[in-house]
Structure formats: structure tokens, C-alpha cells
């Protein structure tokens, strides 16, 4: 039985994620829920879900570190940190030799260079536009009348891919419609869309300076089509952690654990001195 626990909460635009760690840093459980625009509520739900699931009491949670777009809205948090810091920390904890993180979330994508000791180096985020994000795929899935989850498999099984030149969501949508009008097969279009995202993310990553090994995190890492295209375009293997969506929450939890340990050290120094 752990003396205390730490929770990492990642409140993103599409989903809320929670990870619970014990004092040794062992991850006890995680939970993911869609936010649907209700940030505060979903943060509370995901927190309660994980507590109920593990049977850990709220009082035993010594620190709650929040991250993601909704990080400042969450009440009773110990501290909030940006996704950049948390994704880097989470990725490093999962695999200490990781030098580069590509995170494609619902509303943004980022590329982060990690120093060899796991600290954040240079990073970039997409500009004010949905291109190269999960949102782009979501809109396109709707246009094509297919389910978002089908897209990955569809893309990797298609030998052909359509050339989608616009990464602007609005223009790409009309491009997709005219491709279909010209008789393009849906899987080829899907593969083309995955390629368009990968190209866009490549631009972001190359500005940071691509340095393997590369880990991919965020919901879109589950889309095999995008992953496949990214590794082709970057000419690098993409390492996908078992649960790519929760890496930010995991990183937040670890940052919390480190904070507690640091303040304990300080306490020890003070007690020794007195």
C-alpha cells in the first residue's frame, strides 16, 4: 500500500484523460472520457471514475497536476503545466531514450525535441487552424460518411492514394467532394487525407529538427494511416506507446511526484539543520 498517490489530469479539447500513480511512480490506472465542451464536468467525472475504479480515496491523492487546454479551469489542482512539458515528461518516462515527440491531438499538433536528459528543447505547435489535427480527420470522416475509427485501416489497405493539395480543412473538404465526383475510391481519398496530415506535421517537425528515436502521442497516434505516412515521409520509425492518448496525463502525474519528492528533500534538509 502506497503512502500517497498522485494524479495527472489532461483536459484536452476532445477528451479528458486521467492517470493515477503511486509513490513509486507505478501507474495504477487511467481513464479517458470525451469532453464535449464541458471541461469542468468531464474533469471531475474522469477523476471520480479513476478513484472509484482503484478504490483510492480523494484524501490519499497528495497532488493533482493538470495539463491541456482546460488545465486552469480544474478546481482543487496542485499546479498546472503545459502539454509540452507533460508530453515530453510522459514520453521520457515511457522510454528514456526518446529524443522527439510528435503529438497530434484534437485541436492542435506539436513537435517537441527532448534533450538527452529528458528536458524540453525546442518545440513548435501548429498555427491557428485545424490543419494537421484530429479535428481535420473528424470533419473529413463526416464528409465521407464513414466512422473516424475506420480511417486508419482503410488507409493502410488502400494501394492508391488521392493527391490532396490543400491542408486547409475548408478547402480540403471541397477537394474531397470533387475527388469523389471524379470517381475516386473512398479508401484512396482517406489515405490521401492521412498523407496530407503527415505532410503538414512534417513541416512542423522539421522546423524543430527531426531527431530519432521518435515517439508519437495523442489520439491520432491510433490512426495507422497517419502513422504509416509519417514514418514514410520522415523516413523514421514511429514509436507508439500502448496508450498514446494518456502520455500527457502520465507526464503530469510524474511531474507531481517529482515536486513532492523535491519538497520532501527540502524538508529533510531543514529538519537536519535544526
Amino acid at each position: 500500500m502506497s503512502a500517497y498517490y498522485v494524479m495527472g489530469l489532461d483536459i484536452g479539447s476532445a477528451t479528458a484523460k486521467a492517470v493515477l500513480l503511486d509513490e513509486s511512480g507505478y501507474s495504477l490506472a487511467f481513464a479517458v472520457r470525451p469532453t464535449r465542451g464541458r471541461l469542468v464536468q468531464s474533469a471531475e467525472e474522469v477523476k471520480q471514475e479513476i478513484l472509484a475504479h482503484t478504490g483510492v480515496s480523494e484524501e490519499a491523492v497528495k497532488a493533482i497536476i493538470t495539463t491541456g487546454y482546460g488545465r486552469d479551469i480544474v478546481q482543487n489542482k496542485t499546479k498546472s503545466l503545459t502539454e509540452i512539458t507533460c508530453h515530453a515528461r510522459g514520453a521520457y518516462a515511457t522510454m528514456p531514450n526518446i529524443r522527439f515527440v510528435i503529438d497530434i491531438g484534437g485541436q492542435d499538433s506539436k513537435a517537441i525535441l527532448l534533450e538527452p536528459d529528458g528536458q524540453v528543447g525546442r518545440f513548435e505547435m501548429n498555427d491557428k487552424c485545424a490543419a494537421g489535427t484530429g479535428r481535420f480527420l473528424e470533419v473529413m470522416a463526416r464528409t465521407l460518411g464513414i466512422h473516424l475509427d475506420e480511417m486508419g485501416d482503410m488507409a493502410i489497405h488502400s494501394e492508391k492514394y488521392s493527391k490532396i493539395s490543400s491542408t486547409c480543412t475548408v478547402f480540403a473538404e471541397s477537394e474531397v467532394i470533387s475527388l469523389l465526383a471524379q470517381g475516386e475510391e473512398i479508401p484512396a481519398v482517406v489515405s490521401g487525407l492521412c498523407r496530407a496530415i503527415a505532410e503538414r506535421v512534417y513541416g512542423l517537425a522539421s522546423r524543430v529538427g527531426i531527431t530519432p528515436p521518435i515517439m508519437m502521442t495523442g489520439g491520432v497516434a491510433k490512426n495507422k494511416g497517419v502513422v504509416n505516412w509519417l514514418s514514410r515521409i520522415l523516413n523514421q520509425e514511429m514509436i507508439i506507446p500502448p496508450e498514446p492518448q494518456i502520455i500527457g496525463a502520465l507526464g503530469a502525474g510524474i511531474m507531481g511526484l517529482e515536486m513532492i519528492k523535491k519538497s520532501n528533500e527540502k524538508m529533510n534538509i531543514i529538519t537536519q539543520n535544526t
Binding site: D127, S165, E199, Y202, G203, S206, R207, I233
Partner: peptide, 14 residues
């Protein structure tokens, strides 16, 4: 020529 410009995107803004 026709096509994306991923390498140039590193050095020139959108």
C-alpha cells in the same frame, strides 16, 4: 513545380 513544399516550410512562414 506542383506539390507540397515540406522542406521550404521549415524556413518560410505559412
Amino acid at each position: 513545380k506542383e506539390g507540397g513544399t515540406p522542406l521550404a516550410d521549415q524556413w518560410l512562414q505559412q
